[in-house]
Amino acid sequence: MSFEKKLKAIIKEEGYSQAGFASEIGISTSTVEKYISGKQDPAGGVMLRIVNHEQFKKYTLWLMTGDVKPDAGQVCPAFSTQEKCGLITGEVDSQKMA
């Protein structure tokens, strides 16, 4: 799974626009657009802002590895959001996402 699609799914799942997400993290909208288009990867400091943000912490493991651990509070966006963002198709390995 690509970082850009995962980031897009997180932004959609949390109900942010790209501008709103950028403001929340403290970066420019154009930078978020570069991340989502795959033109640029986030620097370590930006990644830390994302994964340490209270609203986005729950996605840290999934964003970094693609894994989830619901018992530890580490989840992924809903299947419908992931499908809209091109991360999954209609048939999903439910064990990986559960």
Rank of each mutant, 00 (worst) to 15 (best):
K84Y: 03
C76K: 09
A98D: 12
Q40Y: 07
M1L: 12
T31H: 12
I88N: 11
L7M: 15
K34I: 00
A78H: 06
D41T: 08
N52T: 15
Q74H: 08
T89K: 14
G44I: 12
T65V: 05
K69M: 10
M47V: 15
W62S: 02
G45H: 06
K96H: 14
S94N: 02
L87F: 06
Y35K: 01
T60F: 03
M47L: 15
T60K: 15
D71C: 01
S80K: 14
V32P: 08
G44T: 13
K8S: 12
Q55T: 13
K5I: 05
S23Q: 14
S80I: 14
T29F: 09
G45C: 00
I11H: 04
R49D: 09
A78G: 00
E54W: 00
G90C: 01
K8D: 11
L61C: 02
L87H: 07
L87R: 10
G73Y: 09
K84T: 07
A98Y: 09
Y16A: 05
T89G: 15
S23M: 11
M64Q: 12
Y59F: 15
G38W: 10
T65I: 02
G73L: 10
L87T: 06
G66C: 06
G90H: 12
T81L: 01
V75C: 03
A19Y: 11
A43F: 07
L61V: 05
V68P: 02
T60S: 15
P42M: 12
S30L: 04
E91C: 00
K57I: 11
G90I: 04
R49Q: 14
S28R: 11
E54F: 01
G66F: 01
K57T: 13
Q18R: 14
K8P: 00
L48R: 14
I88E: 07
K57W: 04
I36E: 02
G38A: 11
L48N: 14
S30W: 05
A9C: 08
V46K: 10
V68N: 02
T89Q: 13
S23P: 00
F21M: 06
I50P: 08
Y16K: 04
H53M: 00
G26Q: 03
A19Q: 11
I88V: 15
I50G: 08
N52I: 00
F79R: 10
